[in-house]
Amino acid sequence: DHDVVPEDKFQETLHLKEKEGCPQAFHALLSWLLTQDSTAILDFWRVLFKDYNLERYGRLQPILDSFPKDVDLSQPRKGRKPPAVPKALVPPPRLPTKRKASEEARAAAPAALTPRGTASPGSQLKAKPPKKPESSAEQQRLPLGNGIQTMSASVQRAVAMSSGDVPGARGAVEGILIQQVFESGGSKKCIQVGGEFYTPSKFEDSGSGKNKARSSSGPKPLVRAKGAQGAAPGGGEARLGQQGSVPAPLALPSDPQLHQKNEDECAVCRDGGELICCDGCPRAFHLACLSPPLREIPSGTWRCSSCLQATVQEVQPRAEEPRPQEPPVETPLPPGLRSAGEEVRGPPGEPLAGMDTTLVYKHLPAPPSAAPLPGLDSSALHPLLCVGPEGQQNLAPGARCGVCGDGTDVLRCTHCAAAFHWRCHFPAGTSRPGTGLRCRSCSGDVTPAPVEGVLAPSPARLAPGPAKDDTASHEPALHRDDLESLLSEHTFDGILQWAIQSMARPAAPFPS
C-alpha cells in the first residue's frame, strides 16, 4: 500500500487522527484517494484483494465477484509491481515495509483507509498491559489484515481490525468495519463480527460495544468508541475503539438485554438511515425525530424517553415518601432524547437536551391539597369587569335574561352582576328603583315568574340570613337542586349567576 499512500500523506493522516480522531482521518484520506487517478484506485483494489485478505475476510469475495470481468485485479505471486511496468521484474528490497512494521508496532494501528489505518492507538496503548502477550500477537497480524480498504464507483468500504477477539475476553470487541457502500446513491455502514460483515439490516451488537450512531460526518466517531472515555459513568459499556482492553462492566443492572439487537429503522417514522440506538431497549431513532430533536450524538450512555420514564417511576415512589426537613431528592440522569409524543421536562434553567451534561430531575413533595375552585371561562368573567365610571356595571355583549332568554333592554344586578328583565323577575308590577337594581334572587323575592315553557326556580334557592346585616342577608345558599333548576333554563347567565354566588365573597367592612 506504500505505492498507493505516500509517506507524507501517511504522516498527515496520523497527525489528523491524533488531533480530530479516526473518523475524520478516514474521511480525509478517502476524499484524497478519490481525487487520484484511476491507476492509484486500481492499485488500491489490488492491494485489498490479496489472497491473505480474501482468506481472512470471507465477505470480500462477493465484492470481488461483483467487479466487471474485464477488470484485472489479480496479484502476481513473485511480488508487487506497478501496473504500468511491462516487465515482470522483482521490485527492489522494500524498506517501507520495515517502516510500516515499526510504526504500526509503535502506534498499534494508524488512522488511514489502508491496512495502516483504523484502530485507535492511544486507547490501545492505555489498555494494553493486562493483555500484552495476546495483543502483541495481534499486532503482528495487523499489517496483514488490519485495514481492508475498498473503493469503487459501486462499493466503497473501509475495514478496521481490532485485537478484541482475544480468547477469554468477556464481551470482547470482535472488530470495527467502517463501511461506506455507495449503492444507488445511498450510504450504509456496517460492522465486522468474527470475520463476517453485518449491514444495518442485520447488524449484531457484538459483546459490549454497539453501533451508536451510523454517521460518517462530524467530529463524533462512527461508533461511540473513545478509548479514553473507558466505561460509562454508571458502569455503562465498553467502547469499540478500545482495542485489546480488559473486560469492562457491560450494562447497567436495569438493562433488559446485554447482547440485544437494535432495530435498523426509526421507532417514530419507521424509516432507515442514520440512527441513534438506545442503551436500554432495542429501539433506534433519527436525531430529527426525537422531541426535542438533537443536533449531535450525546457522549456516554444514552437512553430513550421510555427508558428514562421507567427509571424515574422506579425512583419516584421512594422520593415521595414523607421525609421531614430533607432537601428534594435529586436523581442524576443521562441526557435523554425524547421520541415524538413523549416529553420529560427538567427543571427550568437546565441546558437543552443533547448537550454533554447531566440533567437533574428533582422530585419535590406534593403540595397540600386544596379545595378545587369553580372553573370559569374568561368570557364568563367579562360582565364582572365591565364597570362604568360611576361604579355601575355596563352590559356585556350577548347578555340575556335568565328567565325569558331575551337580551333586549336587559338590566344588570348590582349584587350578582346577572342580566335580567324587571318585568320577568317582578311581574307583579313592583316599581323599579332608580339605583341599586337587584334581581329577584338578590332582592329576596322568590315568586316564580309566569313564563310559559320555563321551569320556575326551586323555592330553596334563597336562604336569607339575619336582617340586621343587609349585605350578609342576601347571601344565597345554592344546592344541587338549585343548579339543576338553573340548568333547565338553558341560559348561560343562569349558570354564571350560580357560579358567582357559589364563590365566597369577603364580608362587608363594618362602618367606622
Rank of each mutant, 00 (worst) to 15 (best):
V454C: 06
P334A: 07
A428W: 10
P448I: 03
P282C: 10
L287G: 08
S306K: 07
A418I: 06
T301N: 08
L381C: 07
L333S: 08
R303C: 13
A477R: 03
A251E: 05
L359I: 15
C413G: 02
E321R: 12
T491V: 03
P332D: 03
V360T: 12
Q316W: 15
G407F: 10
D469G: 10
A371E: 09
L287D: 12
H421T: 01
R295C: 09
C401M: 03
R480T: 12
G388V: 09
R270L: 12
V410N: 08
C386T: 13
E321S: 08
Q243N: 15
W422I: 03
W302A: 14
P427Y: 04
P368H: 10
P433R: 08
P247T: 10
A399T: 07
E314T: 13
Q497L: 01
L252C: 08
P327H: 11
L384W: 14
A418W: 05
D271I: 04
T358Y: 15
P450R: 10
E452K: 07
S339T: 09
L381G: 05
P253I: 10
G336V: 08
C439Q: 00
C442Y: 02
A251C: 09
Q309A: 03
R440A: 07
P335N: 15
A396T: 12
L437R: 10
E326K: 07
S369H: 15
A418E: 10
L294T: 07
A419K: 05
H474Y: 12
R461F: 09
F285I: 11
E321A: 09
R400I: 03
A507G: 10
S369Y: 12
L333P: 12
L287S: 08
T311I: 07
V360Y: 05
R345C: 05
D279Y: 09
P450K: 06
L411S: 11
Q316P: 08
P433Y: 13
P459T: 14
V246Y: 13
L381R: 07
G346I: 13
L294M: 14
Q392P: 13
L496W: 14
A248S: 10
A418G: 06
F510V: 02
T491K: 03
S443P: 10
H479D: 09
D470H: 08
C277F: 08
E274R: 13
P348L: 12
D470P: 06
G336Y: 05
S488C: 03
P476S: 12
G429R: 10
E390R: 04
L352Q: 13
Q309I: 10
G391L: 11
T357N: 11
V329E: 11
E274M: 03
L258D: 03
L364R: 09
S488I: 05
R432P: 07
D271T: 12
A504E: 09
L250Y: 13
I495P: 02
Q243F: 11
P328Q: 12
S431L: 11
G280D: 14
